[in-house]
Design a protein around this nucleic acid. Sequence first.
DNA 1: TGGAATTGGCTTTTT
DNA 2: GCCAATTCCA
Length: 824
Amino acid sequence: MGSAVGKLVAGMLKSEDVLKGLTKPQREAATHIDGPLLVLAGAGSGKTRTITRRVAFMVSCGIPAQNILAITFTNKAAGEMRERIRALLGGAGAQGRGVNVLTFHALGARIVRDYADLLNLPASFTIFDTADQLKLIKQALSDCGLSPENYPPQAIRSAISGAKNKLQTPGLYTTGNTDHFARCVARVYSRYETLLGAAKGVDFDDLLLKVAILLRDNKEIRTQLQDRFQYLLIDEYQDTNHAQFIIAHMLAMDHKNICATGDPDQSIYGWRGANLNNILEFEQFFPNAKVVYLEQNYRSTKNILAAASALIANNIKRKKKDLWTENEQGPLIDIITCRDEAQEAEQIVERVQQAHDQQKIFWGDMAVFYRVNSLSRALEDAFMKAGIPYQVARGTEFYGRKEIRDVIAYMKVVVNVADNVSLERIANVPPRAMTEANLDFIRQAAEQRGVSMLQAMQQLDTTPIPSLTRQGGSGAANLGRIFLALRQWVYGTTPPPAEVTEEPSEADLFQNINVDELMESSEEYNPGVHDEIATETAPAKPRLTMKAILERIYTESGLEAMHTKQRQRDGETDDDPLANVNELINVAAEFDAQNTDGTLDDFLAQITLASDVDRLQDAGGAVTLMTLHAAKGLEFPWVGIVGWEDGLLPHMRALMNGGNETELEEERRLAFVGITRAMKHLLLTNARCRMIRGETQRTIASQFLRELPKETFNHLDLAGEEPLGSRGGSGRSESFRSGWQQRFGGASSGPSSSSGSSSSSSDSSENSGHRFRRGMMVRHAQFGIGRIEHLEKAGNQTRTVVTFNTHGRKTLILEYAHLEPLGS
DNA sequence: TGGAATTGGCTTTTT
DNA sequence: GCCAATTCCA
């Protein structure tokens, strides 16, 4: 059937039309359909354009759209690609809809659900986000008799996440790690898996890990999925981690129709396991791969591009690449040094206003980026004050709110009665006398009986839990009834009686899939299989909309009453729970409009994998504020980037431990990504003083600013005289510009002369005979007063060991530590 | 028992 | 400075 439809479409969609306007290399990439292809696409080189055309070209050649799978990293990217493909296919729109454009995680969720039975999961499993995960880890810690003080849940979480990214099961993890901490992690990991399994939960990493293992160890399934996805396209390949790498390779193993696109210079997710080698060594994994380089930039001015190129050239571990453009030279980059973050924000706002009024740039065409979310606050204040429309993409601004998480938790329990984490979250919201102690009793009883906590609550009249307080008992029974009624209403049936919930052992969860078992259950892969399951539980009823379900849950749970009461008590506040939940209901309505056959678990999966950034998609008409990470893949005519300071733009983390070169290079790539988002106007700012967790600290201009060629920017210093004491003053004011160039000038490396006997610590440390000596007393903004024990030259930097009175011994890099000498 | 008030701890980026 | 966890009070 594929070919018939294909022909039809081919008739409507001319291959030449699809390729019209592509440059030679773009065309080369777009027309290479069979066999491995690597597109190394520099920033702004028209990559998205090329790959969407490529997909259209494939369809025009008669390849059935549903056999094409395009994988992106963010929902936003997926949405945009879907949109653009649809637009290209125009009249053949029906086909366009058939192209699978998904994020890795969404793909994972789909496959895990389709093959849930093979993975020991019910189709109604729920996805646990990072917060759920942390709760479970705390539980696991206490079960293992370890205290969260000595074993920070965060650290354990990221260790487990790292292990999962590398496809290490608890068993494998144990064998590979022998130090004390790792052994504890292994124990917690194992317990965590058990708890997760009992709750029928799957964490973000599982969505990749389970699929990777399934594909790796199960030939049958692999073949099915390879057949289904005969053409693979993976965007941002430089950001893939090991699990994603395995998924890609397993899917492409036989047909080798894999097109990877990306840019090693834009790899910014090393911290969550991305492995740059996946893209660097692509040709070794696929020896016949065709490689196309896209190096002409269509986005930025010559000037911006020159600055970006010079910056990234400082990375050693890098394939050299020359971006060029035929665009105009463009205006100089503006660099403004401000007094503090308030002035910085004012400056940004002022320039934004100017760009809008004088150059007629739309609000929606401007964006401001920062390294960490906390920097948005000052900006927001300033935008608010100036009355300029803006929107902030903050990670958990919306989906992280209590009231939203509460409503979602209710939904999760409706779908997945075993989800103890969500149940515990809302057990006492609104208050039902479900104290910690009562919950403990219920948890214990449930575990003993091998049922979920909700079931234990629902069995209370037949099997009471004696240790519960009277109110606790009735509260629990009440809660049980609420969910009974809700499930009845949603699914039209009472929940299946005491579904088997014996805890699967770790071995069960991770066992390599048994091939014999597979052969038995080797029905044809049916993409609709899940829908069938869903209809089974929801027979012959008019389909409920998510909006209706959500509203019902909101009311029945008692949350609505609680929020209404709150509002009456507090009056209208700017973050009103009622209004926020209404916003969520809007999201549900939106979902209903776009997925006429979507189920509650589809909706839940979508919102747990969604982030706030996704909700901004086409909210034009406002200046966008976001992190540098979130900015990847976007472009704006006008861009501002704040916080160019050591410790912030090369983030502290990268500067610690003697300045880890790998991490520093990732920070540089992040800066590179930021700069290359700009089309015409670029404004970079730093502040002399910045409030960091409640304390005002002096800062040093980012070392990255030094790496920008001086002919590309114009520097303006508004900080004026250096604030107060300690640093001998020396107002640099407008003469700072030359001072700047002396001190930071040019991209050349050598420690640049410097005379300034006094002042800033960067000066002093540049001279080999800096003013710090062993035995000297110093002050550190954070650690207080201490004595220098040791000094040691390490490359361009000086490593120093200081024993602080209150914080003990620390190893610091003199250049970044901002130590203040106090005399000896 | 629930809600308010206070303390302590900690911060990168996101699916 | 903000948030979560803890303590305190009605």
